[in-house]
């Protein structure tokens, strides 16, 4: 996965020198200025130590709806996802260039409250990772670390979150049983409910169905479609059909570059880039 792109580094230097974006296509820029962006990433470069994992990624995600990121393994899509809630901070030796804003706020300033950011930008992981606690305690975890102690309010949050994740009817009679006793698909919906309990606005999902059987996958996909009415969902997936089924916008990553980004319908039927076409028609990957 070693990437050598001296060229793109040079262009990056140039674009960074021009702080003022006007010299580029003015019409496009004014358009961008007018629209409210849930997530806006500009010229993002990301490094693990000396290895560059993302090259000059620019993307604007609108409020609500589902954005899917597809691409072969190791293309940087998960890294990109973890940029958005600063989970990469936990890995020593990572470095980032460029600008990442969420709700119009740059999230990579020295003053950024990372804890708060992660409450706004929830995350669901590839392998369901409920804590080894009861179902109730799993959902109540977020509100509790936020300082909420009131039992009635906690139960309310637990109920609404589980309902939000379409799990309430299956577990309402056994909230005190261990979360790890649930099936894989249920565990993943529990993790979604756990994320919902902190009332995020954005949900990041890192291949949430890759460790789960097809029927449970279907349930989670339905859930994602329901949730996207109220949340902005950015999902990384290995599965192109899944991206086509559930997303409104799709981005195609290849070797750390965002090759193409657009409406899902047009990206899959009428890709602009040859590499995208090769990938979605199954010529590689």
């Amino acid at each position: 996965m070693k990437m050598m792109q001296t060229n793109s580094n040079v262009t990056l230097e140039e674009t960074r020198v021009q702080e003022d974006p006007k010299p580029e296509s003015t019409k496009l820029e004014t358009d961008v200025e007018n629209e409210y962006c849930e997530v806006k990433v500009e010229n993002l470069n990301f490094f693990y130590g000396s290895v560059q994992a993302l090259f000059n990624v620019t993307i604007k995600v609108q409020e609500k709806g589902v954005a899917a990121l597809i691409g072969p393994s190791g293309c940087g899509k998960s890294t990109f996802l973890r940029v958005l809630n600063r989970m990469n901070d936990l890995i020593p030796g990572t470095r980032l260039e460029g600008k990442v804003s969420i709700h119009g706020e740059n999230i990579y300033t020295p003053n950024t409250d990372v804890v708060n950011l992660r409450k706004k930008v929830g995350m669901v992981f590839q392998h369901p990772n409920p804590f080894p606690k009861s179902i109730f305690d799993n959902i109540a975890y977020g509100p509790r670390i936020d300082g909420l102690k009131d039992k009635i309010m906690l139960s309310e949050i637990v109920e609404t979150s589980l309902q939000g994740a379409a799990l309430w009817n299956e577990v309402k009679d056994r909230l005190n049983e261990p979360a790890l006793a649930l099936s894989g698909g249920q565990q993943q919906r529990l993790c979604i409910a756990r994320a919902l309990a902190v009332k995020p606005r954005i949900l990041l999902m890192d291949e949430p169905t890759s460790a789960i059987d097809p029927i449970a996958t279907q349930k989670i996909e339905d859930l994602i479609r329901d949730l996207c009415a109220n949340y902005t969902i950015i999902i990384v997936t290995h599965n192109m059909q899944q991206a086509a089924r559930i997303s409104d916008h799709t981005g195609f990553f290849l070797q750390g570059e965002m090759v193409e980004w657009g409406k899902t319908s047009s990206l899959f039927t009428n890709p602009e880039d040859q590499r995208t076409e090769d990938y979605i028609t199954g010529r590689f990957g």
């Binding site: 804890v115 929830g122 992981f125 990772n129 975890y141 670390i145 993790c191 994320a195």
Partner: peptide, 19 residues
Amino acid sequence: AYREGSFALGATRWQVVRT
């Protein structure tokens, strides 16, 4: 995975360790 899950819910490092 437990640590990541906790961090992703907005826990501070000490909260992750303690809970």
